[in-house]
Nucleic acid binder design. Sequence first.
DNA 1: CCGCTCTCTTGACAATTGTCAAGAGAATGT
DNA 2: ACATTCTCTTGACAATTGTCAAGAGAGCGG
Lengths: 200, 200
Amino acid sequence: MRRQVDKFAERRAQLAAAALQTLAELGYARTSLRDIAQNSEFSHGVLHYYFSDKFELITYCVRQYKAECVTRYDSIVTDAGSADELKRGFGAAMAGTLREDARLHRLWYDLRNQSLFEKAFKDDVTEIDQSLERMIWRIVSRYAELAGVSLALSPSAAYAVFDGLFYQALVRHLADHEDAAATLEETVPRVLELLTPARA
Amino acid sequence: MRRQVDKFAERRAQLAAAALQTLAELGYARTSLRDIAQNSEFSHGVLHYYFSDKFELITYCVRQYKAECVTRYDSIVTDAGSADELKRGFGAAMAGTLREDARLHRLWYDLRNQSLFEKAFKDDVTEIDQSLERMIWRIVSRYAELAGVSLALSPSAAYAVFDGLFYQALVRHLADHEDAAATLEETVPRVLELLTPARA
DNA sequence: CCGCTCTCTTGACAATTGTCAAGAGAATGT
DNA sequence: ACATTCTCTTGACAATTGTCAAGAGAGCGG
């Protein structure tokens, strides 16, 4: 009994991984269930054995993405011994994941946008977005603490700023601008400084 | 002869307007040519009389969107007599278009993302994006000039920052956060200040 | 009135889509 | 060894898609 549940969950995860791979390659609008199945080692019918419909599959994928994503910068916060180290670590981490997971990030932005039209994705996307906001806020607020400076911005505004910077770097990176990641690594610490002016 | 060309161009524009309307409502992934035709006063076949295929139609739409969009803030720059006025005008203009054209902005972000997967849109999207970057830069650099402050950020980084803020406000506005526009109107001037620290 | 071009509608096509049912095969428990 | 459940494949379905061809109707010059 327990075996079966695990097997079932494992295969779901395996199929979701194949789906993520395909979605990241083709984008939401151009990915069919047959595309996904062809990218796995199974036939297209099996998807409806493990997922009730396309939405549940993609929703599951989004949740799986979240697990990898949300704790990405946590070690930066806990390990940094100084404001300067945190600042540089933040920039390096963003540049790193930009280089490593560019297509997965592209998919995230795609699905986040789809959720503005397809309400089936709305809840999960919103939850991930809030998690990301909290993640950014842990960094920014910790930085202000270490640096002993004020913090003149709300958590959501801080998230929006760094998200905008990351998106732009992603676009350029995907357009083969070789220096996109390096530029991001430079810009992020500078903006972090600007957002945290010295105490009056 | 001239009559015919004008008529032809006029109908193209008219159909593109219907297409923009429909795309803004449904999003790229869920909009078919029949949806678009149904939203106009013509039948679906006429679209292939005025446009060679779906991509040409949408590309034409994107260009039409650009015309409305790119000069949106120009009067703010030319009319502002002081840094403070420019700062407030910028925030008010962003909040205004957020309230007025929310669904069109949603479409823009959708198509901008599609261009990361469908290279047919890439060139036009890139061109619009650069126009927007220049538009933001005219504001930011003029502000620094009027305020007599330094400017520690590149044009692209400045654009990314305000674009991120606007996107987030758009998402919240569409999710019926009544205060999304008002919050944006507050945040934009504050961030503009932060990005332009007083001269050392 | 005839012939011609410009517009637009209708209907069809092949391909693709999500979905599901029937059944084969494997695994498992007894 | 048998019966039962779990997995997976195959093939089909109805709907939708972009595309296009045939032709109707309007407007116009001759």
